[in-house]
């Protein structure tokens, strides 16, 4: 297990480097007019060239790449091309927002899917049918449309929760919770649906297994069998699905942040991508992939904890 985790960690670091490198090359290879964008439409061609030289854009791509790789690996993400603010500062400001909503969504999905999934698996009939049909539909609807509807109805029309803005946890825990509730719920929609369907399916599969019948033959109550034995055995595939859904949550945050006017790293990425601010885009890419790597590692740990066969290896 330890060997396995170290291998996964190394693979994760390699993934971050590979993705960041690919992004770097893509951005620098084609982003030829960045200098002109920065200095503005009114500047002379000479000014643009001077800006390009200042950013090192006139040097060959290979040389620039290795310089960048060196500084990035030493922990320096550089400065924005547009406002000279260090990328790390920008990210540091945006991260609490994004982490709050994606982990809010993750916890919400996990809780709701365990409840709905196991109840649907055990209770046949209308409850199961309703859960199944609504999960299929919820999974199919793009999350940001849910966000738009929630923003319109709950925030604007009913005024129950704020429609825009983020309140840091340190300022007020209650306000923080209120500010992330709608974005998290919107984000959690699809992930909850997919995980619920998976958990329901794998619990139904486990319920058919021989050892469940043997457990019943020993006079154990149904509740005990379902929530102790069946849920435990059905959990690993659901954990896998949830960890895959988490990747979608990170991506979905980009759009949900726009709907709720949050300055998280998603909206930072969007505006930087539109401008062509390569250092900021790269910074966001690195941070997002890092988050995914860490969460996948946690999922691996959970998987091993749930599955004694994996743990032994």
């Amino acid at each position: 297990m330890a060997v396995f985790l170290i291998r996964r960690l190394l693979a994760g670091i390699l993934l971050v480097i590979l993705v960041a490198s690919a992004t770097y090359i893509l951005l620098n290879y084609t982003g030829s007019d960045v200098a002109r964008n920065i200095v503005g439409e009114t500047a002379t061609p000479e000014q643009a060239l001077a800006k390009a030289a200042e950013l090192g854009l006139d040097r060959p791509l290979g040389a620039r790449y290795f310089d960048w790789l060196g500084t990035t690996l030493s922990g320096d993400l550089g400065k924005s091309w547009f406002n000279n603010v260090p990328v790390s500062t920008t990210l540091f400001n945006g991260l609490p927002v994004t982490l709050s909503i994606i982990f809010g969504a993750l916890i919400l999905s996990a809780l709701v899917s365990v409840i709905l999934g196991s109840l649907a698996a055990v209770r046949a009939g209308w409850f199961d049918k309703t859960v199944q049909a609504s999960a299929v539909l919820a999974d199919s609807i793009p999350g940001f449309l849910v966000a738009l509807v929630l923003a319109m109805v709950v925030a604007v029309n009913l005024g129950w929760l704020p429609a825009t803005g983020f309140v840091p946890f340190q300022r007020s825990a209650v306000e923080w919770l209120r500010s992330i509730t709608l974005p998290s719920v919107a984000l959690a929609f699809g992930a909850t649906a997919a995980t619920t369907l998976q958990l329901r399916g794998s619990m139904l599969d486990v319920l058919k297994l021989d050892y469940v019948r043997t457990l019943r033959s020993r006079g154990l109550s149904d509740r005990r069998i379902v929530f102790k034995h069946v849920l435990r055995n059905a959990a690993p595939p659901a954990v896998t699905v949830l960890s895959l859904q988490f990747i979608g949550l990170v991506g979905g945050a980009v759009i949900v942040e726009k709907v709720f006017g949050l300055r998280g790293i998603g909206s930072i990425a969007t505006s930087a991508a539109v401008q062509g601010d390569a250092p900021v885009v790269l910074g966001v890419v690195i941070v997002m992939v890092l988050i995914v790597v860490v969460v996948n590692l946690i999922a691996d740990l959970a998987y091993g904890w749930l599955n004694p066969k994996v743990r032994a290896e």
Binding site: L27, T30, G252, V254, V274, V293
Partner: peptide, 18 residues
Amino acid sequence: FIMAVPAIIILLVVMAAV
């Protein structure tokens, strides 16, 4: 590897750059 990267981020980069 491919599955571990959020699709939207890749698309953002590609659409901005390419």
